[in-house]
Amino acid sequence: MSLTSDPPIVKAPAEPEDYGALKVVPVRHPWRWAAVIVTAVLLAQFAHGLATNPGWEWEVFAEFFTAEVILKAVWVTLQLTAYGTALGFALGIVLAFMRLSDSPFLKAVSFAYIWAFRSIPLIVQLLFWFNLAYLYKELKFGIPFGPGFFTFDTMGLVGAMSAAVLGLALHQAAYAAEIVRGGVLAVDSGQLEAAAALGIPRLRQIRRIVLPQAMRSILPNAANEVISLFKGTSIVSVMAIGELFYQVQVIYGRNGRVVPLLMVATAWYILLTTALSILQHYVERHFAKGSTR
C-alpha cells in the first residue's frame, strides 16, 4: 500500500547480481566507543593516583618488598600452603572414596567429618588446635585403649606451626573431599564398567582409569582451593606465626607505615597467585590429553 507518488520500483528480473564486487560497510558501535572512553579515563585517574599520591609511599614499599624479614615470611606462607594442600588433599582423597564406598559406616563417618569441618570457622578451629595441650597433656602411640609405645609432650609436638598446618589441612580436607568426589562422579560410569569387564584390578581401575579423567573436573576447583588456602594462611597470624601478613602487621605496628606495607603483602600475594595460575594452566593441559579431536 503505497501512499507516495513515486513510480513503483521495477527491477529487471535480469541476471543475478555480483555482490562480491560491492564494498562492505561494517556496522558501527558508537556506544561501545563511549564506554571505552569512560573506562579509559577512570583507569588513567586511578593510575595517576597511584603514581602521584604521596600516601602510597613507594620508597617505603621498595625498601621492604625484598627485605629479608619479608622474604622469610613469604617462605613461611609458602610452606603453610604446601603442607596444607598436600595433607589436605591426601586426606580429602581418602574421605572422598570413603563416601563413595558401599559401606554405610564409612560413608557416615566421611559425611560427618565433612559436615563438622565445613561448619567450624577456620579461625575457631585453629585456636582449638593451638590450645590442644590444654585438653591432652601428652600424646601416646600404641594399642588403642592399651599401653603406649611412644609418648609425646603435646606442647612440644604441637607447636604453633604444626597446629597451624594441622588446622589448615583438616579444614582443607573437608573441601578437597567434596571436590574429588565431584570429579569421580563426573567420570562416565561406562568407564568403570569397561575396566571391570576387562578384569583390571580395582586399585588400578581407580589410579589409571578413573582419577586421570576425574582430574579434568577436579583441577579448576582444586586450583581455586589452593589459591584460597594460600591467601587464607593470613588467618594464622592470630597464632603469632611469622607468615607474610603477620610480619607486615608487626612492621607497620612499629613504623606506622600501614599503607605501603599492606601493599608489600598485596604485591606478594598477587605475584604468587599469578605463578599458581600459570602452573594450573600447564597441569590442566597435561590432563586434557585425548580430549580434543
Binding site: 562416565d188 561406562g190 569397561a194 575396566a195 569387564a197 582409569i209 590432563f287 585425548g290
Partner: peptide, 9 residues
C-alpha cells in the same frame, strides 16, 4: 559395549 567405552585419555 554399545557405547564402546574406550578410555578417552
Amino acid at each position: 559395549f554399545q557405547n564402546f567405552n574406550l578410555f578417552p585419555h
